[in-house]
Design a protein around this nucleic acid. Sequence first.
DNA 1: GAGCACTGC
Length: 721
Amino acid sequence: MGTECKRKRKVSLFDVVDERVTAKVKTSTIINPWNGRPYSQGFHEILEKRKTLPVWHQKHEFLKALKENQTLILVGDTGSGKTTQIPQFVLEAVELESCDRTKKYMVGCTQPRRMAAMSVSRRVAEEMDVAIGEEVGYSIRFEDVSSTKTVLKYLTDGMLLREAMTDPLLERYKVIILDEAHERTLATDVLFGLLKEVLKNRSDLKLVVMSATLEAEKFQGYFSGAPLMEVPGRLHPVDIFYTQEPERDYLEAAIRTVVQIHLSEPPGDILVFLTGEEEIEDACRKITKEFGNMGDRPVGPVKVIPLYSTLPPAMQQKIFEPAPPPVTEGGPPGRKIVISTNIAETSLTIDGIVYVIDPGFAKQKLYNPRVRVESLLVSPISKASANQRSGRAGRTQPGKCFRLYTETSYNDLEPQTRPEIERSNLTNTFLTLKKLGIDDLVHFDFMDPPAPETLMRALEELNYLGALDDEGNLTKLGEIMSEFPLDPQMAKMLVVSPEFNCSNEILSVSAMLSVPNCFVRPREAQKAADEAKARFGHIDGDHLTLLNVYHAYKQNNEDPSWYYDNFVNHRALKSADNVRQQLARIMARLNLKLVSTDFNSRDYYINIRKAMLAGYFMQVAHWERTKGHYLTVKDNQVVHLHPSNCLDHKPEWVFYNEFVLTTRKFIRTVTCIRSEWIVDIAPHYYDLENFPSCEDSEAIRVLKKLYRKREKDKVESKSRR
DNA sequence: GAGCACTGC
């Protein structure tokens, strides 16, 4: 920002909204500098409210720091107003037009969640008195509500990462704000490292990192001593209660606590944190039953509401309904009781919660690079997470949090939840980074470097898939694969599918695998649901069953009763259709042909299965006849077909989409393949000379025999010639 | 014969 540029600026919004000026202005004759229209009636009202937010007290301090530094860290807790106000402060202070007026820049603000990006941008558009999608917009997958006029864009962190793939220096932006940085999503962590590089090459770009108060020093250390600003939050005090003894059964303890609160505490709604759908539905039933058995005791009415992500949005809306009124006038007050997963910890805020019950557990993703398995495990939460949960009780008035563990246990918790990058398979992330031009992934500047074994696994898998060559360089194939918003295995099967003459079908399968399970199985109609599913079943595998469902959906999607009668989830299928369209557009852009084998040909399904194997050859399991179980090839894990499978027998060879670790080790979504295909399609992976020796594996014996037979045939055919 | 924390492209 040179002084040259500064002088050219005609009106600064900052001057307009200055208190002294607005105080004098009673009418709305002032022109909104962003769109040249007079301000509407509501503008000044909203402005007055904005000024009461804590972050406004530090506006000048912030703008001064922004002017003097390239990188800035801002920490502030819930209620500080940083997400809505800081981007507007930035807009007022920076010059968005290049000196020669040939270029216009934007301010970008990332959010970890789509919903947040959407709702915050709507709010800010209203505050700035402009139409959403014009000067203020948002960009999330499937929805770009921005235009050439846009100067402030909210977008998901993943979306900014995608943008970087075509705009490596992020040249459309003047300032980038990474919000909710403490959540340490995979995308935010990658953006950290990437932006550090970009800032070196673009002295005119500025970065603001916004986070909750946690680990501020760590952020500062990583961003080489960038100045740190603190903004106070706005929370009411919350009293914390611990149990004297550890609880053996946290579900039972949680239910007991709910009952106690309702019987003895003043009015106020209750929020209970549990770990998953089944547990939550179970708890809801038990709580409702408890209050139904109170006999003649005077108990206020309760509304028990489950909350988890796979619940339809209409059901999720129920958490915003008020508590029920007393049954009789002057009788005991009613209470709303929300039983939720972690979704209520960060993603959804429920006002009116006064009591929080925290058993101290959550399902968390874990990755074991040794056996290449990602799994969800119920594990103790971190201190930061426990504090976030208790804070949910103090949003509207002072509250209480009941921790169902001892104070000693609390002190033993990890201070922070480990960042996602330490708990994930990084194959996909590494493909993205390669595409972004990062040559040396091993020395990439991660805030928390992933385990070396995870790193090696990712490089190895990309090499087997042909996305990286032996020197670790991105191949042409890898470049094409990286264009798809899919895991590399899936991207690979899609990219090679035209060679197998079935890209139309692989597109559909990919879309179906990318959305939540489409089969509905209500507790009261499990048998009927299973029968309905069986009607779509294909004996050669679950992937083909998914294809059947998709085809049936395309034929029946006008008929609302079809979904109901067949126990399929309308939302999941609609979303699959959406994904499929996006993937098809990418295929077209890359000149990958959309082709199908004739449906009546005996090769129709064979081609599809072969194409899928070309992506998933690293996820093959073999039926060990003498042992009576499946063994994953190479990793040698004893696994079981997930009971949801639709095969009518136990095929000798299968490939699987997912390894699920629950009560046992399951492989879910499996399709039957033939050993000859394995040898034909992935000889480089099934290179038996370099196989880890596993004496017991029948799979290796079978493959070895097959290879020997091939050698013999080759020699014989040669000698015949 | 079992389950689906939460995000995101």
